[in-house]
Computed example of a mutant assay.
Amino acid sequence: MEQIVYVDGAFVPAADAKVSVFDRGFLFADGIYEVSAVLDGKLIDNDSHLARLERSVGEIALALPETLPRIVEIQKELIARNGLIDGVIYLQVTRGAVIPRDFVFPKEAKPTFVMFTTAKDIVNAASAKTGIAVKTMPDIRWARRDIKSVALLAQVLAKQAAAEAGCQEAWMIEDGQVTEGGSSSAFILTQDDVLVTRENSSAILPGCTRKAVMKLAEERQLRVEERAFSVSEALAAKEAFITSASLFVQAVVTIDGQRIANGRPGPMTNRLREIYLEFARATAV
């Protein structure tokens, strides 16, 4: 089946999809992206992702080319056209293409809007059973990490270094504290059974899966604390895990080659993954 992508109002074969070389997303990373999970052909927690999209474009004075209800219609049609059962749907909006190249926002630019799907078995991922290894890296990103910008070079370099070290994720470190993963939110479970994750601010992206997991935990009277934590605190924790739209909840079992607890996914992480999957399936649209 040939993959179909969405480009500026048209559904086209991937091989025929084109964006101008003068597009500001390509030239300046002047754009925003979002990723929503798909299970059983349905969108997971999509309202949260679209709300974050709307906030991010607002922070850089970029107008969405479609209304949110219309974006949902496009997402669903793209899922259907690709026969996607499980995976993710990616969308990106940039400030568009204008000649000549100039740093200042062009008044006549029309936003570029693209979407595509990727098949992925999130539920049965092997790493959900084994846990993942993390490598720590200095957080060299810009100061507005709360904006889901397409400017991801720092994350690319961090995740490449992690991959070369045999790890599946990088944890970004600033002032001795963990900010977040290269493409995920970071959590630990302390020895006194408190779930800890960094508080939302311009230092991290406000994770949609993070938000849902925290709410689900609090509804079950689990103690949740939003604050920074260090790598040494993570290594001394009962459990550690990450959350993201493309992974849901996954255990972290080593950091820089050092085991956390017994080096296997812990019962709290496994239970939170189960709870999130129940939530995802119950609220899918």
Rank of each mutant, 00 (worst) to 15 (best):
D8C: 01
G9E: 09
A10S: 12
F11W: 03
A15G: 15
A15N: 15
D16E: 15
D16I: 05
D16M: 14
A17Y: 10
V21Q: 05
D23M: 01
F28N: 03
A29H: 06
D30L: 01
G31T: 00
V35Q: 10
V35N: 07
V38W: 03
D40G: 14
L43S: 08
D45F: 04
L50I: 01
A51C: 01
A51H: 07
S56G: 02
S56R: 02
G58H: 03
G58Q: 01
E59A: 06
A61E: 13
L62Y: 00
L64Q: 04
P65A: 01
L68E: 12
V72D: 13
E73Q: 11
K76C: 08
L78G: 07
R81W: 04
I85R: 14
G87R: 02
Y90M: 09
L91V: 05
L91Q: 14
Q92C: 05
V98N: 05
P106C: 09
E108C: 06
E108A: 15
K110C: 13
V114D: 09
M115N: 07
T117G: 14
T117F: 10
A119V: 04
D121S: 08
I122W: 02
V123P: 03
A128P: 07
K129D: 10
T130P: 12
I132A: 05
I132S: 06
K135I: 00
T136Q: 05
P138Q: 12
R141L: 02
A143F: 07
R145S: 12
I147A: 03
I147Y: 03
V150L: 02
A151P: 03
A151K: 13
L152Q: 09
L153S: 10
Q155N: 15
V156I: 11
A162I: 07
A163Q: 13
A163D: 14
A165Q: 09
E169H: 05
W171F: 15
W171D: 07
I173L: 14
I173Y: 13
I173R: 14
E174V: 09
Q177L: 12
V178C: 12
G181V: 00
S183I: 06
S184H: 08
S184G: 10
L189S: 04
Q191G: 03
L195Q: 10
T197E: 11
E199D: 12
E199T: 11
S202T: 08
S202W: 05
L205W: 04
C208H: 05
T209S: 02
R210P: 08
A212Q: 03
V213H: 07
M214W: 10
E219D: 14
Q221M: 12
L222I: 05
L222E: 11
E225F: 01
F229I: 06
E233V: 00
A236R: 04
A236I: 00
A236W: 00
K238C: 08
T243S: 13
T243W: 10
S244P: 07
V249T: 08
A251Y: 03
V253A: 01
T254Y: 03
I255E: 07
I255A: 07
G257R: 10
R259D: 11
A261V: 00
N262S: 11
G263W: 06
G266T: 04
G266W: 00
G266L: 00
M268V: 15
N270V: 06
R271P: 04
R271Q: 14
R273P: 03
R273N: 14
L277S: 03
L277V: 04
E278H: 11
E278K: 12
V285D: 15
